[in-house]
């Protein structure tokens, strides 16, 4: 069994390496795009949204940037993982390897970029004086929740997309709405109380709140929000893993 596990991780890392190497091939700026993308988003959103904001958010650009980093990791991973099995059909038809390495390697390659950008982001944040020893705890739990949720939902959509190619289009549409359904550009305190249950269903609420609290000292998620978000994450993960395991036996029949 350990031998099988070793092979699984070797294959997973080899696939991740492939993703990383292939991504910025033939680009002039390469790694630079990693930071340039969210930076551009931040400048534009930061400029426009300050017109609408009733109460200003402290360190708004920093607040925005960490949410955008987490969001970009999530949306890029989910969008690419959803179509990954269909995209890599030649691998599926060739050999009997564990199919989950395909979507998970996409997540890992995005995670490498995300964490690198997060480290760069920490440098200016350190001068704000918002980082405390407890920050680490909030940041790590935010990241853990983010990775767990992204893996769970990616396995789910990747498996479903093999049979129902609509899922890919559905995810693309969903991601546009989802961005506004997550407190990235606004603060959680702006949501009217009667709609809060909607955000409780969205695990990314706690993710960005934990990160925003850890880095710039914005209010952390309340226990009810954190609890319901964790339950939603575990549910999605369980459904995703089980469904992927079941469907992956017959991916070859559908691609």
């Amino acid at each position: 069994m350990t031998s099988g596990m070793q092979h699984f991780f070797e294959l997973l890392f080899a696939m991740t390496e492939k993703e990383l190497r292939a991504r910025y091939k033939h680009t002039v700026f390469g790694f630079f795009w990693l930071v340039a993308n969210p930076l551009l988003q931040m400048l534009i959103i930061g400029f426009v949204f300050t017109f609408f904001m009733k109460e200003p958010i402290l360190y708004y650009n920093y607040y925005l940037f960490v949410g955008l980093l987490a969001w970009n990791f999530f949306s890029l991973s989910l969008a690419k993982a959803t179509s990954s099995i269909v995209f890599e059909r030649s691998l599926i038809k060739k050999a009997a390897f564990p199919r989950e390495v395909i979507p998970i390697s996409i997540l890992l390659s995005n995670a490498v970029h995300f964490l690198a950008a997060l480290v760069l982001y920490t440098v200016p944040v350190a001068f704000l004086g918002t980082l405390t020893p407890e920050s680490i705890l909030y940041i790590l739990s935010g990241l853990l929740l983010l990775f767990a949720f992204t893996i769970g939902i990616s396995l789910l959509t990747a498996a479903l997309n093999v049979r129902f190619r609509d899922i890919n289009f559905f995810v693309q549409a969903l991601l546009i709405i989802w961005f506004y359904a997550t407190p990235i550009v606004y603060s959680f305190s702006m949501i009217p109380y009667k709609f809060i249950w909607l955000w409780r269903l969205n695990p990314l609420t706690s993710v960005v709140q934990l990160l925003q609290h850890g880095f710039v000292g914005a209010p952390p998620p309340g226990p009810a929000m954190l609890g319901s978000n964790i339950v939603a994450t575990i549910t999605i993960c369980a459904v995703g893993v089980l469904l992927f395991k079941n469907e992956s036996k017959n991916f070859d029949d559908w691609v």
Partner: peptide
Amino acid sequence: AGFHPDLTGEQNIFLNGMLLGMKK
């Protein structure tokens, strides 16, 4: 099947070999 056009021959040997169940 399973070769990646942007990777070198050697990198493809490793990737393809692992897909066929070989250890690193």
